[in-house]
C-alpha cells in the first residue's frame, strides 16, 4: 500500500510547494517510488517549473478523462533519482483555472471519488509514497485532497495569531476526517524556533525550518535536496523523511 501525504496550510505562502518538491525528491533519491501531484487546481504551482511536464493534467483525473497513470510523467532520469519519480501538474491556463472555480458540489463529490480511485491506481502501480501539494486554506480542492490522504502535514509560519487559526483547521477539518497530522514550522528565526503545535490538540511538530535565503533564491532554479544534499535545508528534509518513515512503517 502506498502512503499518501497531503501538504497543507491554513494561509498561503507558508512553503508547502517548496517542501513538497524537496520531500518527494528526497524519497526518490533514496530509491523510493514517488508520485508528486499538484492538486492546487485554483492556483497551480507548476512546481516552480523545476520538474518536466507530462502530456496531460491533474485536472483530467478530476474530470474522469484520464487515469492517474496516463497523467503522471516519470522524471527520474531528468532529476537523476534512484527511485521512480512521477509528477502530475495542474493546468495553469487561466481558462482551466476559471473552470475549476465554478464547479458545483456535485462535481466536487465525483472529484473526490475519482481522487480516491487514483490513489488506488498509484498503489497498484507500485508507488510507495504519494505526495499531494494542496492549495492553502479551506475549499474543495484542498479538503478533497486531505480527505484522500493518510497523513496531513500542516506547514505553518510561527506566531501566536497563526496558531489560533491553525487550531481551527485542525479541529474543524483534520480531526473530523480522522487524519494523522503533523506540523512543520517553516521560516522560523534561526535563533528562536517557537512552538506552534496547537496546545489544544498537542500535535507533533516534525521540524522547525529556519528562514534561509538559499531556499527562496536558489529554490526557483534547483531542488536543493538533489543539488546540495549537505545543505542545512536539505538535511532538515531528510530528517523529516526519516521521522515520517518511522511513523508510517
Amino acid at each position: 500500500m502506498a502512503v499518501t501525504i497531503a501538504i497543507h496550510s491554513y494561509k498561503g505562502g507558508s512553503g508547502k510547494t517548496s517542501f513538497a518538491i524537496n520531500l518527494a525528491s528526497a524519497y526518490a533519491s533514496v530509491g523510493k517510488s514517488v508520485c508528486l501531484l499538484d492538486v492546487d487546481l485554483k492556483a497551480p504551482s507548476s512546481f516552480n517549473y523545476l520538474l518536466p511536464e507530462g502530456k496531460h493534467w491533474v485536472n483530467d483525473i478530476f474530470e474522469g478523462r484520464y487515469g492517474v497513470m496516463d497523467v503522471v510523467k516519470d522524471v527520474s532520469k531528468e532529476m537523476g533519482t534512484k527511485g521512480a519519480f512521477y509528477v502530475g501538474y495542474s493546468n495553469p491556463d487561466i481558462l482551466a483555472v476559471r473552470e475549476v472555480s465554478s464547479k458545483d458540489r456535485k462535481w466536487q463529490s465525483k472529484a473526490l471519488k475519482l481522487l480516491m480511485a487514483a490513489k488506488k491506481d498509484l498503489s497498484n502501480a507500485g508507488i510507495d509514497v504519494v505526495i499531494l501539494d494542496t492549495g492553502a486554506g479551506v475549499d474543495f480542492t484542498s479538503v478533497n485532497a486531505i480527505a484522500v490522504a493518510d497523513h496531513v502535514i500542516s506547514v505553518g509560519r510561527p506566531g501566536a495569531s497563526r496558531q489560533r487559526l491553525m487550531e481551527q483547521v485542525i479541529g474543524g477539518v483534520y480531526m473530523p476526517l480522522d487524519k494523522d497530522c503533523y506540523i512543520i514550522e517553516n521560516m522560523c528565526h534561526s535563533d528562536n524556533p517557537t512552538d506552534i503545535s496547537g496546545k489544544k490538540f498537542d500535535l507533533p511538530v516534525l521540524a522547525s525550518i529556519s528562514c534561509m535565503c538559499d531556499v527562496a533564491v536558489r529554490g526557483d532554479n534547483e531542488v536543493l535536496v538533489l543539488t546540495e544534499p549537505g545543505h542545512m535545508f536539505s538535511k532538515k528534509i531528510y530528517d523529516i523523511m526519516e521521522s515520517l518513515d518511522k511513523i508510517t512503517s
Binding site: 458540489r105 456535485k106 466536487q108 463529490s109 473526490l112 471519488k113 480516491m116 480511485a117 474543495f140 479538503v143 478533497n144 480527505a147 474543524g172 477539518v173 473530523p176 476526517l177 480522522d178
Partner: peptide, 26 residues
C-alpha cells in the same frame, strides 16, 4: 442531496466514518 466533502464534515462522527469508508470502497 449530494454528499461532498464539506457536507461530510457536518455529519455526526459515526455517520462520517461510515460515509468516508464508503467513499473509499466505492
Amino acid at each position: 442531496d449530494v454528499l461532498d466533502v464539506m457536507t461530510l464534515l457536518t455529519l455526526p462522527d459515526h455517520l462520517r466514518t461510515t460515509a468516508t469508508a464508503l467513499f473509499e470502497l466505492g
